[in-house]
Design a binder for these strands. Structure first.
Length: 333
DNA sequence: AACGCCTACAACCGCTCTGGT
DNA sequence: TACCAGAGCGGTTGTAGGCGT
């Protein structure tokens, strides 16, 4: 926290409101400043933040006003400690999204990205580390060695690895909304799976859906999920019915994000998904064959690619992805 | 009571993204 | 196309307050 009476030239290089070297306050907000900003926002609503700062009579840069409003003054903010449900959801979403705090915050009504980020860094991260070190004493606790959520997902601790309810909801959504083999539908109907689950071990709801669809297609399609926590592990397949885009990991440099093995009528070599952080490219290496002869793409019409593989990080339509999973993303206790 | 350590979290900083010109 | 300004994001800092000694 900063001292409230600190007055400096605001370092906001983007702001042009301080070209005259206007002295702008920094540090903690006083109740008077809060009141000014609150009143102005309630009267006029959101607009250009530099204008807001000026018109509200605040000696603050627009950036500071924006932050104060978003993180503290907004009327719809939920104050107080995170509930266990929120905590679980944060861990889960973090395992899917990484440090995309704003994306995570968007799924927790009343919570801000800053709040979640702080909570993660101060509380969850520590707790996860403790749990991991307890479960595997040889594990390095080096910050750079691993993401705690990744460890925790691998260890099956803190939050259940087999989060069947969530999985069922996600996959149910994916399956029931997927009826075509087009690549665009694959992009729009993702499945998020974490952990070491196997279709054969999925909860009844999920199994029913999968078996139903797969049987209809007269195809056995078995996906063994890999062992990567971060980014989720899944796969996609398409025997006319089942399409399950892979949800990539996003954080590690050149990390092999896992492998997919398809059994049954469809036999394939492991499919490796690589994400190169430096180039922000997601590379998909697929060596699949069916019955050892026919390449997968010839059967399923994938043309040896799936829509995500050529996408860059920023091109992931996370909103779109979540939009198709009504049960997962929003928490409202 | 005084001191030091630790934690939580408000706020800043620097960067990227986006839209307008 | 290039440039600029504003918005937004994630990482980091700094300190108030709690707690143990």
């Amino acid at each position: 926290m900063r001292k409230p009476d600190q007055i400096k030239v605001c370092n906001d290089t983007n702001s042009n409101s301080n070209k005259g070297m206007l002295k702008l306050r920094k540090g903690l907000w006083s109740p008077e400043e809060d009141e000014k900003l609150m009143n102005y926002m309630l009267r006029n609503g959101q607009g250009c933040w530099t204008d807001i700062a000026r018109n509200a009579g605040l000696q603050r840069c627009g950036k500071s006003c924006r932050l104060r409003w978003i993180n503290y003054l907004r009327p719809d903010l939920k104050r107080g400690a995170f509930s266990p449900q929120e905590e679980q959801l944060i861990v889960h979403l973090h395992s899917l999204l990484g440090n995309r705090w704003s994306q995570i915050a968007a799924r927790l009504p009343g919570r801000t990205d800053n709040e979640i980020k702080n909570f993660w860094n101060s509380t969850i991260k520590k707790r996860l580390k403790v749990n991991v070190s307890k479960s595997s004493p040889n594990n390095s606790t080096d910050d750079t060695s691993s993401d705690p959520s990744r460890d925790i997902m691998g260890a099956g601790m803190f939050m259940s690895m087999h989060d069947h309810d969530l999985m069922a909801m996600c996959i149910d959504s994916s399956l029931t909304s997927t009826t075509t083999t087009s690549s665009s539908s694959m992009h729009n109907n993702p499945m998020f799976i974490k952990g070491h689950d196997h279709f054969g071990q999925l909860p009844p709801l999920l199994q029913n859906n999968i078996n139903h669809d797969i049987n209809d297609a007269s195809s056995l399609f078995n996906v063994s999920l890999g062992e990567v926590g971060m980014g989720g592990v899944g796969g996609y397949g398409d025997c006319g019915i089942l399409e399950v885009p892979y949800m990539m990991g996003m954080e590690n440099d050149n990390t092999n994000l896992g492998s997919r093995v398809m059994d049954g009528d469809v036999n394939a070599n492991p499919t490796n998904y690589m994400f190169d952080k430096k180039s922000a490219n997601f590379n998909h290496h697929f060596n699949g064959e069916i019955d050892g002869k026919v390449k997968v793409e010839e059967v399923v019409g994938l043309e040896n690619h799936w829509p995500g593989e050529s996408l860059k990080m920023g091109e992931w339509d996370l909103e779109g992805l979540f939009a198709n999973i009504p049960s997962l993303p929003y928490l409202d206790f």
